[in-house]
Design a protein around this nucleic acid. Sequence first.
DNA 1: ATGAAAGCGCTAACAC
DNA 2: GTGTTAGCGCTTTCAT
Lengths: 357, 357
Amino acid sequence: MSQRKTTIREVASRAGVSLGTASNVFNGKAGVGAESRQRVLEAAEALGFRPNSLAAGLRRQRTRTIGLVVPDVLNIVFNELVEHLENIALSQSYEVIIVTSREDPEREHERVRALLSRRVDGLVIVPTRDWSATEREMRHHRIPVVVLDRVAAHDHFPSVAVDNAAATRLGTEHLLGLGHRDLAFVINSTRLWNSAARVEGFLAAMRAAGLEKRARVLLPGMTEEETRAGVLPVLTAANRPTAVFTGSNVATLGVLRAVQDAGMAIPQDLSLLAFDDFAWLTVLRPFVSAIRQPTEALAGHAWRILTAAFEAPDRPAEHIRLPAPLIARETTAAPPGKVKAPRRMKAFKDTVDGALP
Amino acid sequence: MSQRKTTIREVASRAGVSLGTASNVFNGKAGVGAESRQRVLEAAEALGFRPNSLAAGLRRQRTRTIGLVVPDVLNIVFNELVEHLENIALSQSYEVIIVTSREDPEREHERVRALLSRRVDGLVIVPTRDWSATEREMRHHRIPVVVLDRVAAHDHFPSVAVDNAAATRLGTEHLLGLGHRDLAFVINSTRLWNSAARVEGFLAAMRAAGLEKRARVLLPGMTEEETRAGVLPVLTAANRPTAVFTGSNVATLGVLRAVQDAGMAIPQDLSLLAFDDFAWLTVLRPFVSAIRQPTEALAGHAWRILTAAFEAPDRPAEHIRLPAPLIARETTAAPPGKVKAPRRMKAFKDTVDGALP
DNA sequence: ATGAAAGCGCTAACAC
DNA sequence: GTGTTAGCGCTTTCAT
């Protein structure tokens, strides 16, 4: 190999036109004779010409490429976001370059710098816990940015996410309505702003029910294994919760493993409600009740805001919050105590002891 | 924004050195005075300099970037491949640009052209059913390519995959050993060469057991929904199989839905063996027996071969086939007939009628 | 050890 | 409608 690639110059000379004319053909510019155009196209075909987008981007100072930073490619939520964003982008003849931070602020920063070096026109980022360095870099470079999913209360950049607090409030009320009183909310970290909002929604609902004392928030760590290990003891304790609400996919996976280890049955011994829904939750038993994020709509807003910023860079930051519906399936049911001693519908007043005999 | 980005020239002049010296600093070239180096670094920091990799790539004629073409970002197998490949690449200070074909040969071709325009140094591709156009393009451009996962019997390019036929032979023997005689193998399409190999392994094992008449191969389509719709009637027919072996994730998902629709219980009514294993299969009930692809090893080989081709482009194509282990869990058990009329261990000789009463 | 200069392949501005 | 030309920002000889 290493045989030099065909350049537009060679195409032009083969077609017997000037370099500029050939360029105009490939860029669909008006003012090229039908015959010349035809000859250029033929020459390009014959020579196997592939325009060098490095050169074009360098010259044009725009790449029609956006960067997308996600923490992880193994998380289905991010996959869906990637999928939708890429589809929208392609439909507008933009491309997206995906990089992953692996929940590591340093790697995130480094990956963003790589994107900046590639001169992407804009950036969509799902940030890590501590992305201040990354954020500073982006601000410094004055590149259009949209923060997706893991938003803060007051992001400097425009942001789009689900209304996390409302979503967990909804979920908690569902559990409460089923008769649960001892609830645990399991999430990886509250350093993520959206996680904090999820916790907040959970707590708010518990508070409204006068149950704040019975509300437990577990923060076992960022991985599935840490979650399993951290949750297991509370599941096997005498005063264990009767329902667990997980704040993310990895939390759900970890809790499920802990439940396995504890030899418990869902929903007989324990109810489970998951944040983030996807296909496998609906096909293996028990079907998991979940809160579904509208990933396509999220991606759509992110794209809209980003491209608007291409036109008008200095418009005020828009902040979108979408509702996330709850889908009740098989894992959320009445607590075990309920069966033995049916409650008398005192609406959130008294208690049913969820502890096992 | 639109404020011009800092260039290496500005950095150099601020540091009081020539452009070339600054360049040498950023590329870690020897022969730069410690003092100059220091000044350049400071200037770069102060100015927020980000080297323009478009310009560098254009000049250098190499981008230290590889392209990765996958059919889909929602399939966990491809996600794992992406994850591992990206990690290896980054550790060698290469980057990877991921594009998706969505199982569409035209989109695949178009995406590969985009990658070519970006002047990636090499390509790893998980091809679609009919990638002849794509393949021709790649050959024409004489760029190093490795075919991953969806390999053919005799690929022109080096290839790495699991030994598909051996894997399904293994799986089929497992089912046979459990006492099943009426087996169905469900896969999306045999136009994928690796799928063809999977079918072949299944058939070979059935033939070896003298059961070729009882072997059924179902090709319901590329989507989960098509699979569900196509499989449901055969599951509810009088002469239904007692075990289903699915050849891919989407087939598994579709079959699971069909099983749901049919109101059947796994493994009591039907055994299920899946090709491709992952976390959720091990955490919701029943735990699904599966054949696991060693994705990390696959990615490792792909990378090794690709980078070897950077050094020696004309070496003969290497073809790697790795074994894929079977992990027996809860979904594979003895067929229902077995309970009523235990077989007398005539080793694959006679039959147990798997049809339900 | 450092500087000057050529040029990677392309687009856009301008001339004809 | 078409051709010419000047860079885009960088790396890489080649002098010094």
